[in-house]
């Protein structure tokens, strides 16, 4: 994978080429401007070297046209680069809708990763070639940052909220996974490896080794263990709203406003239930802060995502 003295990172994701193209584009622009200045000052130094100690050159106050010229040109070019880089950024942060979901919990000083099928990994992530993968990430303690240089992707992993990152690996191999945000003593050892496998190898890997229960099954177990089901009845007759088919919907809130039911909303509703109450319900749910681990919350979310809306029994 690596030569002894590489000068450039692997291009192993669908973004890598585009990010590198922007990099070389800006580099060309910079070299161009730097060369102009360097060549000019060197020529001036040679041509206008002081001949005698009492030499006084002709004084030039300035030139309005030149000032406008060298204000406008860099401004226009800078705005051009801005547009290029920002369009790329939107591409980098917008996962395709069919992306595979995986989950990341950072803690001092390890990465805990889980596949929806239940497979758990520490400091290693196996992903299939050519598939879009969307990571939902949080931290148990301090700030971390999930960084795969070969994919040109990075995102801070923040305690108390979910952040997302996506990529599509395009080259089989093993690549560095780094923590890029300083997180304490073993920060530089909070590293791992991302293995990009052919899809069939990925399937084999997924089914091999010890069997883990799928995340939604683990989530369902927690749902009963914490007695969530006593209020959140599937048929909607409980004291809390039914969660079936709720994920991805926009719901009306008690006291006005709406909220999109996404990962962050569910997490908040578990840890701080009275923050956003669905319209028609009372703030009676207790907080589960400090009682469920971040991984447990993610499993609950996977379970809630899997709950389909009940089949319509009658047609209107």
């Amino acid at each position: 994978m690596q030569t002894d003295f590489p000068l450039f990172p692997d291009q192993a994701s669908s973004f890598a080429f585009h990010v590198d193209a922007l990099y070389f584009g800006i580099l060309a622009l910079c070299v161009f401007f730097a060369l102009i200045v360097v060549i000019l000052v060197v020529i001036f130094a040679i041509k206008y070297q002081r001949k005698s100690d009492d030499e006084v050159p002709r004084q030039i106050a300035g030139h309005l046209g030149l000032e406008i010229f060298w204000t406008a040109i860099p401004a226009v070019l800078a705005l051009g680069v801005f547009v290029w880089a920002t369009v790329l950024y939107f591409h980098l942060i917008t996962p395709p809708p069919n992306a595979m979901e995986m989950y990341v919990v950072g803690k001092q000083w390890m990465w805990k990763l889980q596949h929806p099928e239940g497979k758990k990994e520490i400091n290693e992530l196996h992903v299939p070639l050519g598939e879009s993968v969307r990571l939902t990430m949080t931290s148990e303690d301090v700030l971390h940052s999930f960084y795969i240089p070969a994919f040109r992707v990075k995102k801070d992993v923040v305690p108390g909220r979910y952040t997302n990152l996506w990529f599509k690996a395009t080259q089989v191999g093993s690549y560095h996974l780094f923590c890029a945000e300083f997180c304490g003593t073993e920060h530089s050892r909070m590293i791992g490896t991302v293995h990009v496998l052919e899809p069939q190898d990925y399937e084999a890997w997924l089914t091999g080794g010890t069997a883990n229960e799928p995340m939604e099954v683990a989530g369902e177990r927690l749902f009963e263990q914490y007695a969530c089901h006593t209020c959140h009845k599937m048929d909607g007759t409980g004291r809390g709203p039914s969660l079936a088919g709720l994920f991805g919907k926009t719901v009306a809130l008690e006291g006005g406003g709406t909220a999109l039911v996404d990962e962050a909303y569910i997490r908040e509703s578990i840890l701080n239930p009275s923050a956003k109450i669905m319209a028609g319900y009372k703030p009676i749910m207790p907080t589960f802060k400090g009682q469920i681990s971040e991984e447990g919350i993610i499993q609950l979310i996977a379970y809630i995502k899997s709950l389909k809306a009940p089949e319509l029994t009658s047609m209107e």
């Binding site: 585009h18 990010v19 922007l22 990099y23 800006i26 580099l27 622009l29 910079c30 800078a78 680069v81 801005f82 290029w84 880089a85 920002t86 369009v87 790329l88 950024y89 591409h91 980098l92 940052s145 960084y147 240089p149 040109r152 992707v153 990075k154 995102k155 890029a180 945000e181």
Partner: peptide, 16 residues
Amino acid sequence: GLFLSSMGLDIHLHDT
């Protein structure tokens, strides 16, 4: 600084 002002590129370069 231009490289780092570019959002699409700063994702890769930030904190390196």
